[in-house]
Amino acid sequence: MNYTILVTGPAYGTQNASTAFLFCNALIQTKNKICSVFFYGDGVYNANNMTTPASDEFNLIHAWQELKKKYQVKLYVCNSSALRRGIVKNEKYFDRPYKIGNLAIFFQLSGLLELANSIKLSDRIIQF
């Protein structure tokens, strides 16, 4: 089956994002396909490169990046949600230059159209 995963919970503070990550791993192990993981609302905090967990905590941002590197899972971040929460690329937004953005590598800013396209290709959408 083909899945789209919608993550609306932040990387830390709730179990939404970590449960979504574990679910993605289970899908991969059972030979299902993940069309994309879309981070929306507070879920965009999963793409904040400046998040630094304690040394004895699981680094969820790094884990998402490894998922992308190892299995080519697309990691889309809602552009509007990201801007509202201060997550930007190394570009100009609204005539404000950001020389160093905080969008983590392997995460891609996109719009809701990308989510809609992913849902269209999927058999199931699961929200965390």
Rank of each mutant, 00 (worst) to 15 (best):
S36P: 01
S36F: 05
S36H: 07
S36C: 14
S36T: 09
V37S: 05
V37F: 04
V37H: 04
V37Y: 04
V37N: 06
V37C: 14
V37A: 14
V37T: 15
F38E: 04
F38S: 05
F39D: 06
F39S: 08
F39C: 06
F39M: 11
F39K: 10
F39E: 07
Y40Q: 09
Y40T: 04
Y40K: 08
Y40F: 15
Y40N: 07
G41C: 06
G41I: 06
G41N: 12
G41Q: 12
D42N: 14
D42Y: 12
D42R: 07
D42F: 09
G43K: 12
G43I: 13
G43L: 10
G43E: 10
G43Q: 10
V44Y: 04
V44L: 01
V44C: 02
V44M: 06
V44Q: 02
V44S: 04
N46V: 03
N46H: 05
A47K: 04
A47Q: 07
A47N: 06
N48D: 10
N48K: 06
N48R: 03
N49P: 01
N49C: 03
N49M: 09
N49A: 15
N49I: 02
N49L: 11
M50S: 10
M50F: 11
M50A: 08
M50Q: 11
T51R: 09
T51D: 05
T51V: 14
T51I: 15
T52H: 12
T52W: 06
T52D: 07
P53R: 07
P53M: 08
P53A: 11
A54Y: 07
S55A: 14
S55M: 08
S55L: 10
S55V: 06
D56L: 11
D56A: 10
D56M: 09
D56T: 14
D56C: 10
E57I: 05
E57Y: 10
E57K: 13
F58Y: 13
F58I: 07
F58V: 06
N59Y: 01
N59K: 02
N59V: 00
L60S: 00
L60A: 00
L60W: 00
L60Q: 00
L60I: 00
L60P: 00
L60R: 00
I61M: 08
I61T: 13
I61L: 08
I61Q: 11
I61Y: 03
I61S: 05
H62G: 01
H62N: 13
A63L: 01
A63R: 03
W64Q: 01
Q65F: 12
Q65T: 08
Q65R: 12
Q65N: 06
E66T: 15
E66V: 13
E66A: 08
E66W: 04
L67W: 04
L67C: 02
L67P: 00
L67N: 03
K68D: 13
K68M: 06
K68A: 15
K69R: 15
K69I: 11
K69D: 11
K69L: 11
K69E: 14
K70L: 08
Y71H: 15
Y71D: 13
Y71N: 15
Q72H: 15
Q72I: 11
Q72C: 13
V73S: 03
V73P: 00
V73C: 01
V73I: 15
K74L: 12
K74D: 14
K74P: 05
L75A: 14
L75T: 15
